[in-house]
Amino acid sequence: MSSPYINAPIRARMYGSTLHKVVWVVVVVLSAGLLAPPLFFIAAKKRVVAMYVPALYAIFAWGTPMVASLVGNAKNWSGGVLVFTLLIAAVHAAILDTDWKAGR
């Protein structure tokens, strides 16, 4: 009989302490989601999330203002997209290292 813990991959913890977690979530919120891609790149390097996650955050957080300035009339939709990205990034940053995730 084999145990699932014997051959389980060793994964690094994303946050060293609760304070570290709070600081990262606050940084993501205060930067209006613009610093979410570096956080998720670090998480991807630690194999907490897949490598496409930081790319998606970069596309939405950094691409939205650029596209809005090119298209024009950005007041109608760019703020909503950035707020939505900010909320998702803050929640995602807060639950990155929880123990209920599959594979733990």
Rank of each mutant, 00 (worst) to 15 (best):
M1S: 09
M1N: 14
S2H: 11
S2Q: 12
S2V: 11
S2M: 09
Y5M: 08
Y5T: 09
A8L: 07
A8H: 05
P9H: 08
I10R: 14
I10L: 13
I10T: 14
Y15C: 11
G16R: 08
G16M: 04
G16H: 02
G16N: 09
S17A: 02
S17T: 06
T18P: 03
K21Y: 01
V22F: 10
V25N: 03
V25K: 02
V27A: 01
L30I: 05
S31E: 15
S31A: 14
G33C: 06
L35S: 07
P38D: 08
L39I: 09
L39A: 02
I42E: 12
I42H: 15
A43P: 10
A44T: 06
K45A: 07
K46L: 15
V49D: 07
V49A: 06
A50R: 13
P54T: 07
A58R: 04
F60Y: 11
F60D: 09
F60G: 13
A61L: 11
G63A: 12
G63H: 08
T64R: 01
P65A: 01
M66V: 14
M66A: 14
V67A: 15
V67Q: 04
S69Y: 09
S69D: 13
L70W: 08
G72R: 08
G72D: 03
N73H: 12
N73M: 03
A74N: 11
A74E: 08
K75A: 15
N76I: 11
W77Q: 01
W77A: 01
W77P: 00
S78D: 09
S78F: 00
G79K: 00
G79S: 01
G80S: 04
L82K: 01
V83R: 00
F84Q: 06
T85P: 05
I88F: 11
H92M: 05
H92I: 07
A93S: 05
I95S: 15
I95L: 13
D99R: 08
K101V: 08
G103V: 09
